[in-house]
Design a protein around this nucleic acid. Structure first.
Lengths: 212, 212
DNA sequence: CAAATATACTTAACACTGTTAATAAATCAA
DNA sequence: TTGATTTATTAACAGTGTTAAGTATATTTG
């Protein structure tokens, strides 16, 4: 059965090549701008061939969305080195911001676009595996923070969701250019190395600091 | 010149009717799903006629985006009744959340979609009038809060942006169905009247409360 | 070995999309 | 009434996601 094995391997290979081509094009021109025909051209197959490997365009988008979560999970792996839970929480936030800054297209796919979510809903399971696993990293950290006396008398889910919301809000307002109208340069010296969200994040962390 | 006046009035009228038709369709099926031909059919004109009144589709989207801001500004008018600045800040947040909940399509247009922003950029002025005016309502309130002793030693812009980011993050994570995987019903009794963001908002306000 | 079947892929087509160029009809000014 | 201007239309372009039908090639079966 070595032959059919090779066949299967080649099939899997093409599936990956399609995804890779899609990724390159998505990152290059955004998804709105990349069509099935574009992807097909890049892998040098006819457009309809893609449908033999992916159900539809959303199926490709969803595969990319999953890659994004793997990437983020990889970045998060660093935090296990941070002993103190509160410091760990702060580090997580910084990593999250950095990820959004460096991979805006992935971020959009993972947390904004409805395409991937529609795919999840269509394929019956209502739990969004990648999402909830990532969320749990935050949730566990918050609980550990509470064990150390932080965020007293607050529900851990609420605290987690506030932290996530703030980070997500900062990232998306920035990405979607809704902060451009707020010129707060006159407030203080601007360090060109730091992004707008990073500035706000510092203040946010100062906020949390006072709660101890 | 009464005749040419009437002509001008009729022209303006059709322009408004197009916008109205677009609004109805957008709210009914979302923008992705409504085409120029759909709008044209509804006003009973040929598709190309729309281009005599609006430069392109983004032009229509932008007009709607502006309507959204008028609507929000209208809701915000209530807050002038609230004496105490911190109470006013809290009220603003609640109004913002409510607006997003009741007008998700407008919200998307105003704070997420890039269509309207592209329109602003194309037409040269880099200041986003509606946006910065709305932001300033928040900013002024934060400054007044600081005059009363709140948010000590923090830059008013940073505080404003954190509040906005948190609200925006809550709204969009909810709207884009990214909170569905977080089942936190077991934490406490769920009041079906209150939305997820409202719950989190209460905790967020409790956060701020502790800073005084 | 030859016929039947299954696999992998392509061509052609459908029903859309936003948008533009060319054209016709209506209204206005001379 | 003629000519110019405004207003609306038809036809078309280049593109989209997606499906049905057809075509080679390779594999299995009689």
């Amino acid at each position: 059965m070595a032959i059919s094995d090779r066949k299967l391997r080649e099939k899997e290979d093409l599936k990956k090549r399609i995804l890779e081509a899609a990724k390159v094009l998505f990152l290059e021109k955004g998804f709105e701008a990349t069509s099935m025909r574009n992807i097909a051209e890049r892998v040098e197959f006819s457009p309809t061939t893609l449908y033999l490997y992916y159900k539809d365009k959303n199926d490709i988008v969803y595969a990319l969305h999953q890659e994004g979560f793997k990437l983020l999970a990889q970045q998060f792996r660093i935090i296990s080195n941070v002993e103190h839970p509160y410091e760990r929480l702060k580090t997580m936030g910084r990593i999250y911001l950095q990820f959004a800054e460096e991979n805006p297209d992935f971020y959009e796919l993972m947390f904004v676009r409805q395409g991937p979510i529609l795919h999840v809903q269509k394929h019956n399971r209502d739990d969004w595996e990648e999402g909830s696993r990532t969320y749990n990293v935050l949730y566990e950290t918050v609980i550990e923070c509470q064990n150390e006396g932080y965020f007293k008398d607050l529900l851990p889910h609420n605290v987690s969701l506030i932290v996530w919301s703030t980070l997500h809000g900062m990232c998306t307002l920035h990405m979607h250019m809704r902060l451009d109208c707020v010129k707060f340069e006159d407030d203080y010296e601007v360090d060109p190395e730091k992004s707008r969200p990073e500035y706000i994040y510092e203040t946010f962390m100062a906020f949390l600091e006072r709660l101890k």
